[in-house]
């Protein structure tokens, strides 16, 4: 894959300025290949990323750096039926997925 999305890193700077991600428990809904979820980990968040597409989930898991294993988990799930307890996240992210 040679697609380069935002190589200048403007997105991560904007997200850093938008809110404090450090130590926050974050749910990303519709994570696709996990590109944004990995950036959120770089901002200091602990991320659970979900997607309804099994192939995207597989790819997101496969491209997860070893050092992110404790900070980033990816699961197969839909935004309309979240398999999580009430009041369990600090931040919920829809990245191009709403």
């Amino acid at each position: 894959m040679t697609l380069q999305i935002d190589p200048e890193g403007v997105e991560i700077k904007t997200l850093r300025a938008a809110t404090d991600w450090r130590g926050k428990r974050v749910l990303e809904i519709g994570c696709g290949d996990g590109r944004l979820a990995r950036r959120l980990v770089r901002l200091g968040a602990r991320v659970i990323a979900i997607d309804p597409d099994a192939e995207e989930v597989r790819q997101a898991m496969a491209t997860r750096p070893r050092t992110y294993h404790e900070k980033l988990n990816v699961a197969l799930a839909e935004g309309e039926r979240l398999p999580f307890k009430t009041t369990s996240f600090d931040i919920v992210v829809f990245g191009w997925s709403l």
Partner: peptide
């Protein structure tokens, strides 16, 4: 979409934040 946002509201803690990113 509204249902997904209601689900997001449910799983968020009090004063939790929803971050939406999409083309303007």
């Amino acid at each position: 979409m509204v249902h997904a946002l209601e689900q997001a509201w449910r799983v968020l803690r009090t004063n939790g934040e929803l971050v939406d990113i999409h083309p303007a």
